[in-house]
Design a protein around this nucleic acid. Structure first.
Lengths: 139, 139
DNA sequence: CAGGATCCCGCTAGATACTG
DNA sequence: CAGTATCTAGCGGGATCCTG
């Protein structure tokens, strides 16, 4: 039989590539931090250099746009990854507080450098974007 | 009439929050770099400290898993934002090369610091993740 | 208070086919 | 070679209702 069709070769390459991406640490990190709410939660818990613990309801008020589902889901995944701790105090009703771990704090630092880049360069990006669109429009 | 129902207030908050996010430079930056293929293209064009220009077909071979549609779409958006340049040389058939701009290069540097964090800490994250799952499983 | 469980819709990645 | 055009299935995410 012949070796492989072009389509088969492409499919094969895709499988291998997916495997590569699944194992790539940088890709995993990007997937984690690019999550819609992760950056906001990190920023809320990390404060401005002085980390603080917050209750579930505090977080949901601070991140005004988030649904309970997504807030809970995101907090769980952050806890799973060892980026935040979840502490349950058996009062009535229960009190649950979230706090950054050292690892989470370290990630928060990285996010701040991302933020710095954004504040330094995003206006330039936006300007480029508008210029590009204007150029396309008159074509 | 009464002021607002709880649902209305939540909806209102969401609208305002969406508006805030839409304008937030950090959010925009995250949306840009978290795009599935952006980091890979930046890495390909940025090289290991020595940027290089690549042809469309070179890129599509290097990012083995990408579809033409997504490669083209991503390159266009990067060009639009002034992060890469697109150069058409009218040979037969045409030759198109892509290259990082200074802005793109600067972003590439940021991505490298992201990569460094990933390589330094992601194994710890992954270990936490497994430990968490093991704990949950035996419950 | 702090979630869990469901239903459901919009968007987009990707596959396929075609072109200057 | 370097794209464009179209179609569709899958899933992330929000809305809603319920509970210890």
């Amino acid at each position: 039989m012949p070796t492989m069709t072009a389509a088969q070769r492409r499919a094969q390459a895709k499988i291998e590539y997916d495997a590569f991406l699944a194992g790539c640490p940088s890709r995993r990190l990007l997937d984690r931090i690019s999550d819609k709410w992760v950056a906001l939660i990190l920023a809320a818990l990390g404060g401005n250099g002085t980390p603080r613990s917050m209750r579930y309801s505090e977080l949901s008020r601070r991140l005004a746009g988030v649904s309970q589902k997504m807030l809970t889901q995101t907090l769980r995944s952050l806890e799973r990854d060892g980026l935040v701790t979840r502490t349950v105090t058996p009062t009535v009703p229960v009190t649950v507080t979230y706090e950054l771990t050292d690892l989470g704090l370290s990630l928060h630092e990285l996010m701040r450098s991302v933020k710095r880049w954004a504040e330094a360069h995003m206006d330039e990006v936006l300007a480029n974007r508008e210029a590009y669109d204007a150029r396309v429009d008159r074509t």
